[in-house]
Design a protein around this nucleic acid. Structure first.
Lengths: 170, 170
DNA sequence: CGGCGTGTTGACAACAATCAAAACTTGTGG
DNA sequence: CCACAAGTTTTGATTGTTGTCAACACGCCG
């Protein structure tokens, strides 16, 4: 997992979203030659680099790749909007529920991989203390369970969390 | 101004961002043929429509346009990230200050155009009551001034608001 | 005039931040 | 292998901010 970090003008830092297998990054390099936010790996990652020249040649010669590239842009934007819409509204426990659902290893899995409290706080816009409290409440309620050995992995009660995540926001 | 509205699965609604002169919308139509969020005009707007076929022909024939198109995607994503980073952190009055600065008519103007309290609330993730309170506090402090006649237009004290907007978040 | 949409204000309750301390983990060097 | 230091998480007490509920003001239009 890779966190996409934005450093605001005022020194504030916020995680914009978490990138996972299949996600693309730095596509803007083909345009402006400077990155606008940091990417920091949260665990061991395998990355595949495509040199700009190759990208440009393919872009020139292959309409199919062009289409694919557009599609990636779209996907990224769509993802960004989803994070915005889902993780910035509602009570702390609602946002946490949504994050847990979002960070599942796959759409059918009930195993969710989280990260440090500090990073959780930065994603959900809350302090590490509230993050900790919310997680522990969910643990006590049996809606999530720590997987031991798994580094900050949780087994989650999907149905329960989906209900939580639908609390009205604002 | 056009508000880009996201309708979440749970019925919640949230404004993702506000589009203004020069912004582009519905670029994804060239890919997936379905829109994922509503666009609603907040005042009279002039729009320019480009048929997909034209877009595709130009995309095929003109490398320059392709570059331009990519650039637009990039711009949109960048904008989305900026909204996320700036308007979802910190106290209500900090977020309001940032919105006021962002909604200026130009980079040098000190006139900021807002919209209904309901929409402000939906952008900043707060209730209309808090939005009203914050605005009135800023008015009383003389940091913003209502422009009479101007429909929800404010003359803002840029320096003061910039200072506000730099309050530590979280 | 009377109703409707929008904005304002107050009192109160709920939620989350802050401050502080302790428990627990992990890695390091003796 | 233990002791210790540094980092991370947990928990408690308290304060501050924001949401909720309710009432009212104001302008607009039929």
């Amino acid at each position: 997992m890779v966190k996409l970090n934005r450093l605001n003008i005022d020194g504030t830092q916020r995680i914009l979203r978490i990138l996972r297998t299949g996600d693309i990054i730095g596509l803007e390099a083909s345009l402006s030659s400077h990155y606008e936010n940091d990417a920091i790996a949260l665990n061991a990652v395998a990355a595949c680099r495509i040199p700009i020249e190759v990208l440009e040649r393919l872009d020139r010669d292959s309409p199919r790749l062009r289409r694919k590239l557009m599609s990636k842009w779209h996907e990224t934007l769509s993802e960004a909007d989803q994070w915005f819409g889902e993780l910035t509204n509602g009570l702390a426990r609602v946002r946490m529920a949504r994050l847990l659902l979002k960070m599942r290893e796959s759409n059918v899995s009930d195993v969710s991989a989280l990260f440090s409290l500090e990073d959780i706080g930065s994603v959900l816009g809350m302090t590490i203390e509230t993050a900790s409290r919310v997680i522990n409440t969910l643990l006590r309620e049996g809606k999530i369970r720590r997987i031991n050995g798994g580094d900050r992995h949780y087994q989650i009660d999907i149905a329960a969390l989906e209900q939580e995540s639908q609390s009205s926001a604002l």
